[in-house]
Design a protein around this nucleic acid. Structure first.
Lengths: 341, 341
DNA sequence: ATCTACGATGGGAACGGTTCCATTTGTAGA
DNA sequence: TCTACAAATGGAACCGTTCCCATCGTAGAT
């Protein structure tokens, strides 16, 4: 009883069926379809339909052909923000007839390198990167290979690539303005440890500048969020300290907001009495206590913009004229009860 | 000024550098490494290292060789449950030296077909599928082509493939037992419209059986969750209706839990007084009000199991002996304040 | 009428691997 | 000493495309 491992139809079979050469069939499935006579086109279409032909991407990827594939490297797939951006990327790709291949690096620089190499070997036509580490070498190789790159949020060393992301400076200003307007005078800034040139770094710096400019008191807790003990301790101290000025916690991203909310809950703090403002809007922010005030990022727009940059680059072809640019998006404030006293 | 489109190193260059044939180099990077003499191995390793060689997956995938690629089709990437499973899949893949290519279908059957074809054209060695529609034809083609399939949760028509997922019957029993034990006597079951053979269907059926067996009163709301108005109306009615028996809402998945929480909040209902139990554990369930009781799925385990099935199938090769199996996982109850009166 | 140009098509050499099969060499058994 | 066999290695065909270049008409220019 032979296993019917039916072979997929190849371009050659279609060619035979359509009484054409494989070159013509190849053309039909590429950008050069119009170069074929109408008669030829219908013949090929019919034959391909009849045989259920689909070009083998492996083969075409091999011989320099366009892969119609975009790669995306995500640092943490479990972060809703990343997923939302990814969704925007996806939609933009679909509209252009591109497919998206997503790799998650799980915040591990080693895996980042690994996956970058993988994507390169698939000859992706463009790459959207949300980096953890600094895989400069790999990225430089990709650039030299001619692959357009777009970095999310984070600029990387020497690599010549556009950066798409939030206008972090203005976002922090918005947050501080709001907190000050609501009467909070002592702030605790909560962030994961900022690496070099990351948005975390930008936000942190602006926090310092911002409180100085406004005459607010502020302190900072930058530890891995996994260290719950340190976190609870820090927040507990901050909340319990005797003072006449209302206090608020400012969270640098969604994970920080989650951690802070947990800590405040454990401490029995009333939201609003202790202010809480988070960067990144999440499903549940409206549901906790009086609602958590957030600064929402236009995630879909960021994703779409990334793909647009990619495409623009690709058109530009070898031209190295366009210098690496930064595309900034504005956050929008969603005020809720957690910053109302 | 020529663009330095530096070529990637090929197997041939490594072979030259190592004073070996490309066959040997190929062997070194495949399962047959031990067939090479120790001396040869070190030479090749050194050369590859020196030149930064990485095999081109496109090329190897072409000539019958294994692509070392697993595909995953996700119905809704924004669903945290899907992402969690995906994370399990990813880890299992990594441990086996496989790469994972993820496609999101955004709950659109058309895209589902499209992406399935795409993955097929990349000659993936296995496919983990979280289906929306019923792309039987495409799946059947893949099966005949010899690609191992694993379906998440959902069984599909004729397709011969393993199914990995929750033991929905027992999960519902657990939920009902808990609610009854906590004294809730009238239940509202909230679900998105169940399609054929979906886990939603299984859960719904068991709900009906379960309340009958326990002598509970129950009703069902199965509408798209996007229809907020209908939802609020239904929950409002349920809550406001005069009755002496405590009432609870049972949510069929994470999305339903979110929608129900919003509705209850809008209605000003106190959680616990009106019971709430959701299937799927989410980050925020512990944070809302007195905490929301959930039935957690072992998401990572499900993901890992899916990959294991795939690999087992692949070993089995042409053997069609092993019939399509179902791998069941047990949910675990996380009791919180939303089911405490 | 001849030349040129261009549009439509096809032939065949890559692309970078894998794999079948042949060759070389070392060694144990007869 | 001869044979047999296994281990180590290399040569070359092949996988399914794309792309360069050649071919063949035919229409417009000279």
């Amino acid at each position: 009883m032979p296993t019917t491992t039916q072979q997929r139809t190849t371009i050659l079979e279609v060619a035979r069926e359509a009484r054409a050469s494989k070159t013509s069939v190849s053309r039909y499935f590429s950008e050069e379809r119009e170069r074929l006579s109408p008669d030829m086109q219908t013949r090929i279409a019919a034959a391909a339909q009849r045989l259920g032909y689909r070009p083998n991407r492996m083969a075409s990827g091999l011989k320099g052909g366009r892969s119609r594939l975009i790669g995306m490297l995500v640092a943490d797939i479990r972060n809703p923000f990343s997923v939302a951006v990814m969704h925007g990327v996806e939609q933009a790709c679909r509209e252009r007839g591109l497919s998206l291949m997503v790799c998650n690096t799980d915040n591990d620089p080693a895996q980042e390198r690994e996956h970058l190499a993988l994507l390169a070997s698939y000859r992706v036509e463009g790459l959207v990167i949300n980096a953890v580490g600094s895989p400069d070498r790999e990225l430089q190789a990709l650039v030299e290979q001619g692959t357009p790159l777009v970095l999310l949020e984070r600029e990387l060393g020497e690599v010549e690539a556009e950066v798409v992301g939030l206008d972090n400076v203005r976002a922090l200003d918005m947050a501080l303005n709001h907190l000050q307007a609501q009467g909070y005078g002592e702030l605790l800034y909560l962030s994961e440890p900022p690496e070099q040139a990351s948005p975390r770094q930008t936000r942190l710096t602006r926090f310092h500048q911002g409180i100085a400019a406004r005459g607010l008191a502020g302190e900072v807790h930058c530890r891995p969020l996994g260290d719950t003990e340190a976190l609870h301790h820090a927040i507990g101290d901050f909340v319990a300290r005797p003072s006449t000025v209302p206090r608020a916690v400012l969270c640098a991203n969604g994970n920080a907001t989650l951690a802070a909310t947990r800590a405040l809950r454990a401490l029995g703090a009333r939201l609003g009495e202790v202010g809480l403002l988070g960067i990144d809007e999440l499903d549940w922010c409206e549901l906790v206590g009086p609602g958590i005030t957030t600064l929402a990022q236009p995630t879909e727009a960021i994703g779409r913009a990334a793909v647009e940059c990619l495409m623009r680059r690709r058109e530009g072809g070898g031209e190295r004229i366009a210098p690496a640019r930064r595309v900034h998006f504005q956050a929008s404030l969603i005020p809720r009860g957690s910053t109302r006293r």
